[in-house]
Design a protein around this nucleic acid. Structure first.
Lengths: 195, 195
DNA sequence: TACTTTTGTAAGTGAATACTAACTTACGAA
DNA sequence: TTCGTAAGTTAGTATTCACTTACAAAAGTA
C-alpha cells in the first residue's frame, strides 16, 4: 500500500483526467501523454489499467480514514461538533482537490468492476458507521432528539451532503461548496437538536 | 418524440444492458446480439449510438413528467400528501423497472456528453422546481415549519431519497425500497411538520 | 571501473470499437 | 405487373483499445 513518487504522479494525473473529461477518456494513451511518458512506461509502475484505478481509490481512502479517525479521537468535543468537523474537513478537501469528487462519487461507473466497487463500498460503509455512532452518542447524551433512529438520520445526512456536492459539481464548481454544505448541515442538525 | 415499436424495443434492451452490466458494456454489437439483430439493423432505427442513449433518456423523462403533473394537479390533497404521492410513485416505478434507476442516477457517466447531461439536468431541475413549490405552499399554509427555506429542504429531501435508492441499488435490489423510502420520507416530513 | 537494477523507449500485437457500403427481402400501392 | 419503401443482411472500413516485446540509457552499488 506504499506508492512510489511516480505511482502517485500517475494516480494524480488519472484523477485529474477523470475529473476533466470523464472515465471514458481515461485511456493509457491519454494518460501517458498527460505525463509526457510512453504508454509502456506506465506498465513499469502498474501492472494494468485496473490496477491504476484501484491504486487511485486506495490512495484517497487511506487519507480519508486517517483524517476521520484523528477528528473522532478528539474527545473534548460533543458528537454534534465532531460531525461538523468531519464534514467541514471533507468539504475543504473537495475544494482543494475537486478531482477527487468525481472519483469518489462514481459508484455508477465502478459498479460492475468487483474490486473497484468493493473499495468504494468500503469507504461509504466506513462513513456510515462512524456517523451513526456519533448520532447515537448524541442521542444518548441528549443533545439530539430521537425522532429518527441513528441509521436513518445518517442516511439523511450523507444523502443531503452528497446532493450538495453533486450540485456543486454540476454547476462546474461555481457554487460555494463550503457555504452551501455548512448551511445544509446546520439545517439538519438544528432539526435534530433537542429543544 | 414518437418512438416506433422497434425503437422502444431497442431503448428497453439498452436500458436492461446498462442495468445488468454497466454503460461500458453497452456496445452496438452487444445490443444487436441481445435483440437478435445485425449491428447494421440498429442504424435503420437510430442514426448513432448517442441517439439511442438520448432516446432512452427522453423516453423516461416524458413518462415521468406526465405522471408528476397528473399527481400535482390533484388539488384535493395537501402539499404534504402530494409530496408523498410523488415519491411513492417514483419508488414504485423503480421497483417495476429497476433498470431505469441505473440510467437516471448516472450523471457521472453522462457528465461529459453535452446533450445527454442536459437531458438529465432537465429532469433533476424539474423535480427540484416542483418539490420546492410544494414545500413553499406547505409553509404558507402552515403545515410545515419554516426552519429550512424551501430550496434547502428540497435538496435535503431529494438527496435523502436518492441515497435510499443508491443503497437499494448497491444491495443488489435486496432491501425493501418502498418501505425504506417511505420510512425516510415520513421521518423528514415529521421533522418539517408544524408542531 | 564493472555490474546490476530501475526506468525508460519505439514499434509492434490482436481484439474491439462505432459506423458504412452494397445488396436482399417482404409488402403495399399505382 | 411494376415500383417504392421499410427493414433486414453480410462483409467490410478506419480507428482505438489495453497490453507486450526487445532493446537502451540511466542510476545505484561493488
Amino acid at each position: 500500500m506504499n506508492f512510489s513518487t511516480r505511482q502517485i504522479q500517475i494516480i494524480e494525473a488519472a484523477t485529474k483526467r477523470i475529473d476533466k473529461f470523464g472515465i471514458q477518456e481515461l485511456t493509457i494513451k491519454n494518460l501517458a501523454n498527460d505525463l509526457e511518458l510512453s504508454e509502456a512506461a506506465l506498465y513499469r509502475h502498474f501492472k494494468s489499467k485496473n490496477d491504476i484505478l484501484l491504486g487511485m481509490l486506495s490512495y484517497f481512502i487511506v487519507g480519508m480514514k486517517e483524517k476521520i479517525n484523528k477528528i473522532i479521537a478528539n474527545d473534548s468535543e460533543t458528537p454534534c461538533e465532531i460531525i461538523n468537523d468531519i464534514f467541514n474537513n471533507q468539504l475543504n478537501t473537495f475544494i482543494k482537490n475537486p478531482a477527487i469528487v468525481s472519483v469518489i462519487f462514481s459508484e455508477g461507473i465502478f459498479q460492475f468492476n468487483g474490486t473497484l466497487s468493493n473499495k468504494l463500498s468500503e469507504m461509504m460503509g466506513l462513513m456510515q458507521e462512524k456517523i451513526s455512532e456519533l448520532v447515537k452518542r448524541g442521542q444518548d447524551e441528549e443533545c439530539f432528539n430521537k425522532m429518527l433512529n441513528p441509521a436513518l438520520a445518517t442516511t439523511m445526512i450523507m444523502g443531503s451532503m452528497r446532493m450538495v456536492v453533486l450540485k456543486w459539481k454540476l454547476s462546474g464548481n461555481k457554487t460555494n461548496l463550503v457555504k452551501d454544505g455548512q448551511n445544509m448541515l446546520n439545517g439538519i442538525l438544528k432539526m435534530m437538536k433537542k429543544k
